[in-house]
Simulated scan of single mutants.
Amino acid sequence: MKLKMTKLANYQKDNFFLMAGPCAIEGRDMAFSIAEKISEMCLKLEIPLIFKGSYRKANRTKADSFTGIGDEKALKILEEVGKTFGVPTVTDIHETHEAAMAAAFVDVLQIPAFLCRQTELLEAAAKTGKVINIKKGQFLSGASMGFAIEKIKSVNPEIQGILTDRGNSFGYSDLIVDYRNLVHMANFGVPVVMDCTHSLQKPNQTSGVTGGDPKMISTIAKAAIAVGASGLFIETHPDPATAKSDGANMLPLDQLEELLKNLVRVREAIV
């Protein structure tokens, strides 16, 4: 089931959509294995899927942390996944020159939360004509994200934007989710997404490796659907303990289908 990006804003009328995949593209075999399993379960449950994978991880705590397998190699894997399974793909960009490069391979460009106020980056993404998923900064309110939408619309009034919440900073090493932000962001007339995995991160740990609380993913996801989220963002991996990036807050792949079944029931109960 291919999600038609031209009708993305209408999908919340039927079912939530899912942005899911590994944190980072670790290799072709891993990406294809994950994509195949997620595609099968989403097809069965009639959940539109956008496959997610970062071609490069630019924001790492330690200098020796895994950052990627090579930009072009990872982007080509994303492109191949999209064509093979008939699903759109999304990846994040970090600098203006990356926008056109990534846009040649994927359907959706993602602006990381730390960079959501970077005007030139937003404008460069908008110039590609791709759908843009802007993650709300951990330091911002949902209401303030209207300015990010204004920036991309000023470049291309027809551009399709998505706003994604991933929690707000709470002290030095934790995040907290304020579900009012989803409601406030929906007022801008764009699909709103809850990032159910990054919102459970425990950043800036003394070890230099970000922690997490994946057992709470189901709670975050159910609450987001209950308040009307258009979509969910979930990073998943067959063995999070061995993942090269963000393993501490990813959902084990074998737990995803049961969670999605429960979320579909929540969705049916509120519409």
Rank of each mutant, 00 (worst) to 15 (best):
M1D: 09
K2H: 15
K2I: 14
K2Q: 15
L8F: 05
A9M: 04
K13I: 03
D14V: 10
N15Q: 14
N15T: 15
F16G: 07
G21H: 00
C23G: 06
I25V: 14
I25T: 04
R28C: 08
D29G: 12
A31W: 00
K37G: 01
K37E: 12
K37S: 09
S39L: 02
E40K: 14
M41D: 06
C42E: 04
L43C: 08
K44E: 14
L45D: 01
L45Y: 07
E46Y: 13
P48Q: 04
F51W: 06
G53D: 02
S54E: 05
T61E: 10
G70T: 02
G70S: 03
D71Y: 02
A74I: 02
L75V: 03
I77M: 02
L78N: 03
L78R: 01
L78C: 01
T84F: 00
T84D: 00
V87N: 06
H94V: 11
H94F: 10
T96C: 11
H97M: 13
E98W: 14
A100G: 06
A104C: 00
F105W: 08
L109N: 05
Q110M: 08
Q110P: 02
L115K: 07
C116Q: 10
R117V: 07
Q118M: 06
A125R: 00
V131I: 13
V131E: 05
I134W: 12
I134L: 07
K135W: 05
K136W: 11
K136T: 06
Q138D: 10
Q138L: 13
A148D: 08
N156E: 01
E158L: 10
L163P: 03
D165W: 04
N168S: 13
S173W: 05
I176Q: 07
I176L: 14
V177E: 01
H184E: 12
M185N: 01
A186P: 03
F188T: 03
F188W: 10
T197P: 00
S199N: 08
L200I: 08
Q201K: 11
K202R: 12
G208H: 11
G212S: 06
P214N: 09
T219M: 13
A224T: 10
A229Y: 08
A248R: 10
M250I: 09
P252H: 08
P252V: 11
P252M: 09
L260K: 01
V264R: 14
E268T: 14
I270R: 15
I270H: 14
